[in-house]
Nucleic acid binder design. Sequence first.
DNA 1: ATTGTCCCCTGTGAGC
DNA 2: TGCTCACAGGGGACAA
Length: 273
Amino acid sequence: MPELPEVETIRRTLAGHLTDARVTGVRLIWPGAFQGWGELDFAGILTGKRIQGLERRGKYLLIHLDEGWSLVAHMRMTGRLLYFSASQEIGPHTRGVFELNQGELHFQDVRKFGRILAVPSAAVNEVRGLAALGPEPLEQEFTPDVLRNRLRGKKTCLKSALLDQRVLAGLGNIYTDEALFRARLSPERPAASLEREEAEKLTAAIKEVLKAGIEAQGTSFRDYRDANGRKGEFQRSLQVYGRQGQLCTACGGILVSKRLGGRTAVFCPACQV
DNA sequence: ATTGTCCCCTGTGAGC
DNA sequence: TGCTCACAGGGGACAA
């Protein structure tokens, strides 16, 4: 569930705690979540290294260490990175603990989908998934023309295309539904069918909803927490996601949910065309 | 090359 | 009350 605004919030809440901290030890409780590099094991790579800074790309969090190493973390659905200033007991879903010279970083993940990889910083761009990532929607360079170009030739519906991280980076099920509603575009529209004006509305809607999500420190629909264990507030501002059967805030009609490309889309069939 | 389907996991809640 | 089962959904693997 962590999408761009949630990962950005994790990055921001983690940065102050982690920057300049040194990794003194690593405990892998469920080793399946962690991957080293070649012959080098995960804990061995990390131990003794100092954290220099944190970066986000799409839904990936990059933790840069000294000596040319980086961690590539993806929370998938239920992953959490939690910082504790003092030693903290592990919970049933704690998959690993990074012991720092000051405090601890716990990786928790109910569903065991999240992953943290240790890679040479120079090889970050080769990590599968990161390599083909589309543009960052909040960058200035992400314009209606860029969006239209990336949707050109697509045979899928708009909803599926926006969820494709190679088209643009960082949107998940929540923010695609919200952006499409704000742009008054149907998720069922063929992705390549957007007129210029519609691409302008959608681009603006994507940027707005992501910015609002970050400002609200993310959407805690169920599992999401930031690095301090706090919920976000954006679930209060959702206009369509999770509201199937309820009334459209724009026209008063009934919101419907429909399975599109294996994902549930919620939208207003009257407003979104 | 692109697209669709299944799978990975566990907790939750609806229905019987 | 207790059981079953669909569902949640990001992305990788694989087939078409």
